[in-house]
Write a protein that binds this DNA or RNA. Structure first.
Lengths: 117, 117
DNA sequence: TCGATAATTCTATAAATATAGAAATATCGA
DNA sequence: TCGATATTTCTATATTTATAGAATTATCGA
């Protein structure tokens, strides 16, 4: 991931409505939710929701697809993976004691970054 | 981690100077760097750097300590861990196939190219 | 085709955030 | 104590971002 993409993703998530929205879609999974459904759950007015959805789509954090007259949004996990990697890259000058520092953060499991000493 | 803390951390990282600054400190490790050293490396004027350092400290992403007349800043890994966990929580309605989706992102392995369907 | 539903785009205003120069504070060494 | 160094705080301005109402676009079903 490049800096510009990371900034876009972080900027997208750094706003209350969008953070709630993203986390909602992460919980829901690949099926996603329609804009109307999201608006109802979060209590956001349509034009405002659309503004935030567009922001998240541009940042690559969610995807958009049309289903009839519904627009359905779903979390794009790959982008978050890349962002997490970017934020924790080269911890402590690579491969010292920090190999474990940023592990087990994601889904409760530990990812190994070989090279210990 | 609570929403307010997550928003503070994300907002802190969603700015070019601060993102570069944070990543620099992550690479350097626990010893940290002085404000002057950081200013020189990033090419930021003192008052502006101070503004951004304060923001990162308030977000809990870096720590501050005085060493003589230097102010030394270092990455606070625990906060990033908590943030990563918050962002990937309850993926796909807990415990389905998505338990692995957000793994191996942290330590920077290029092996994970997760494309969620 | 028409009316209804779903959602977006447009526009103006409001609010939050960043920038940089000048002044202030803290520490050091002579 | 004094001058120099390191850094922060203050202040005003510039920039970016968010809000919400009104108008527009797209799809569906009769």
């Amino acid at each position: 991931m490049e800096q510009a993409q990371a900034l876009a993703a972080l900027g997208a998530l750094a706003q209350e409505t969008r953070l709630q929205l993203y986390r909602l879609l992460v919980t829901v999974g690949p099926d996603g939710l329609s804009a109307g459904n999201i608006a109802e759950r979060l209590g956001v007015i349509p034009s405002s929701l659309s503004f935030h959805l567009t922001n998240l789509v541009h940042a690559g954090l969610i995807t958009q697809r049309r289903v009839g007259r519904l627009m359905v949004y779903a979390a794009e996990y790959g982008t978050m993976n890349a962002l997490l990697a970017y934020l924790t890259e080269n911890c402590c000058g690579q491969g010292v004691s920090c190999t474990q520092v940023f592990n087990s953060a994601a889904a409760g499991s530990s990812a190994a970054k070989t090279t210990a000493a």
